[in-house]
């Protein structure tokens, strides 16, 4: 099977998944109690106005007509209007995407940059102090809840250390609250040569990214360690040693590369989850991302917005998975043949 065919197959599967998500969302809304019209105009409104609103939003149609309309809208990219603010859902989702993507990618980069070397060290110095340190770190990282870590980091850096850091280092890590986007900051840097915006962005994203990335770092460290130890035990490693090639090649070109194949899958899945909104982290840090907006939508029972966000998340998840599969297929030649 060629890589093209492989991708087409995965894309078709992805379409099915999205359709499933849309349908489930619709069903949930249909069976959930409460009259959406109340949410739009308020419970105290005139019944006539309420009827008008129902008519306007198509809530009086039979359920299958509503479903067809709804799916049609989704397919054409029309997610409807928010009950709460009457703004277009598409806009409300898209304006929050950059913040979420920035956070998710920053957390992933932190995780990979720290976890893979740590895992390699841990695996190559098994049962030595470095290994114990890394193992302890990953245990702590896996068992620390996000919200607690976030609050502690805020307390430490944004409260206690803020003044001393400002005084002695000239910078500090604020609580979050993204004031400038990465894209804008880069554009400013390129066009005007002013790096201040980018640095501000870095300072603002540091704490949330660490909070979000810690669990992930810990997990990848473990996976890398156990994966490498496993891989080192395979006969081909002995056979490669017998060839007499430099040790660095055995460790990285052969063993680490093969270890990374399953880890990349995990990375992709995790990135998908992170895009799904790091709800807790975004809330703790007041980070204006999708997760933050999803909580708002949930609290207001703003169905169109909720659906829009969830379908978008599902879409992101599916696309990332396809990308991971494609990458997997190039890394592991056996995949496409199966």
């Amino acid at each position: 099977m060629s890589i093209g065919k492989f991708l087409v197959k995965r894309l078709l599967q992805g379409v099915l998944v999205i359709w499933g998500v849309i349908t489930i969302m619709f069903a949930l809304r249909a069976v959930s109690p409460g009259d959406p019209a109340n949410l739009i105009v308020g419970p105290a409104a005139d019944p006539e106005i309420r009827d008008q609103v129902r008519e306007q939003y198509g809530l009086n149609e039979p359920i299958y007509v509503q479903y067809v309309d709804y799916v049609q809208g989704m397919v054409t990219g029309d997610f409807g209007y928010s009950f709460q603010s009457s703004r277009e859902v598409t806009t409300m989702v898209l304006e929050r995407v950059p913040a979420t993507l920035e956070l998710a990618i920053a957390a992933t980069i932190i995780a990979v940059v720290i976890a893979v070397p740590l895992g390699v060290i841990s695996a190559s110095r098994r049962n030595e102090p470095a290994d114990y340190g890394a193992t302890l770190f990953s245990l702590l990282g896996i068992s620390t809840p996000n919200f607690w870590l976030g609050l502690m980091l805020i307390l430490l850096f944004a409260v206690f250390l803020q003044d001393p850091m400002e005084t002695y280092l000239g910078f500090s890590f604020p609580q979050g609250r993204r004031t400038v986007g990465f894209g804008e900051a880069v554009i400013t840097l390129v066009t005007t040569g002013y790096a201040g915006d980018l640095l501000t962005w870095v300072r603002h994203i540091t704490l949330p990214a660490i909070t979000l990335g810690t669990y992930f770092t810990a997990m990848i460290t473990r996976l890398t360690r156990s994966g490498m130890i496993d891989e080192f035990g395979k006969p081909y490693v002995t056979a490669t040693e017998a060839k007499g090639i430099p040790y660095v090649l055995i460790r990285y070109k052969h063993v680490l590369r093969n270890t990374m194949i399953p880890i990349i899958t995990v990375l992709g899945l995790q990135l998908g989850t992170l895009i799904g909104g790091a709800v807790i982290t975004e809330t703790v840090f007041n980070w204006p991302g999708l997760g933050d907006r999803l909580i708002q939508a949930l609290n207001a029972r703003d169905w169109p917005l909720m659906q829009g966000i969830i379908v978008f998340i599902a879409l992101g998840f599916v696309l990332i998975n396809i990308a991971v599969d494609a990458l997997y297929a190039t890394l592991d030649p056996r995949v496409t043949n199966e």
Binding site: K234, A239, T240, R257, N258, L331, R334
Partner: peptide, 15 residues
């Protein structure tokens, strides 16, 4: 040089 028993597991599967 050495030749091993099981050729299938003695080659790195991804190179």
């Amino acid at each position: 040089s050495m030749i091993f028993q099981d050729p299938e597991s003695s080659f790195n599967p991804s190179l």
